[in-house]
Nucleic acid binder design. Sequence first.
DNA 1: CACCATTGAGTTGTGCACAACTTAATCGTG
DNA 2: CACGATTAAGTTGTGCACAACTCAATGGTG
Lengths: 153, 153
Amino acid sequence: MTSSLPAVPDAELLRLDHQVCFSLHAASRAFGGVYRDALKDLGLTYPQYLVMMVLWEHGSQPVKAIGEQLRLDSGTLSPLLKRLESAGLVRRERSAADERSVTVELTGAGAELKEKALPVPRRILAATGLEVEEILALQALLGRLTGALDQAR
Amino acid sequence: MTSSLPAVPDAELLRLDHQVCFSLHAASRAFGGVYRDALKDLGLTYPQYLVMMVLWEHGSQPVKAIGEQLRLDSGTLSPLLKRLESAGLVRRERSAADERSVTVELTGAGAELKEKALPVPRRILAATGLEVEEILALQALLGRLTGALDQAR
DNA sequence: CACCATTGAGTTGTGCACAACTTAATCGTG
DNA sequence: CACGATTAAGTTGTGCACAACTCAATGGTG
């Protein structure tokens, strides 16, 4: 492990790192900005949109399952879901089978919102200026990266 | 613009979008986690590390200049710099030439911290599991992406 | 079956991101 | 030179991320 790459001095690597971590940070925030604009009409934030997409695709689910798909813990999800609930988009119900578990389900308004969300992805795709193939390549690279980073902890 | 890609239906695109935005979000957070571990010894958060790197590389600078390099505004930087100051790593001084401007400079402790930071990038690079060339390609792609996204707003 | 470890959700506290705003200094134009 | 526009920094308020914690329900083992 930690192939030490003796050719590259530490100081050089510090500068390279500056670029890389900054690039990713900046890209993530730039994406956030574009989503913010695109989602303003829907009244959703970007993380809220992620949660809604999980529900649109897979239907009612316990908080735990949503958290696993988005790699978010209850500390992030609980208040977020509470906001979605008070916006009238989801309902939360204690499971009868396991009283520890809370199932999140879409309300009528929540389900309807999917229609308004349909044009969002095309708008985002256009904003990236990338071809679909490049997007897929980026996605594959990021997936590999995330897996490696998660494993390294 | 907005090549509409009539071959891909909206619903499909919504799922693709799910993947892409999630990938980037997840990668960004995974990076954050690895940095959190690597920076714990230094007592720095990831954004604080970005600011320190700017100062290590380019020396004393006004808040404005730091913000431009990191694409962060004063709402984010002011409290962050205040924390760095109370940690004894930087000093803030009103510029004599322009009283609106505040120059941020490293303290002795702040400058010394660079030595402790030197091994960090190698650790991060190792955690990514990527080759230097792949990193550079990713960086280029992300740079292009960020530029396009910023311009689309 | 009794007890204790584990699990799922929620809470608390810290820090970042960003919009909207305030304040004070500076600049530019009439 | 005076005054309105602009600029730099800071403040306020909202929301997300995450660590550390609480609490109640569940499950496994002696």
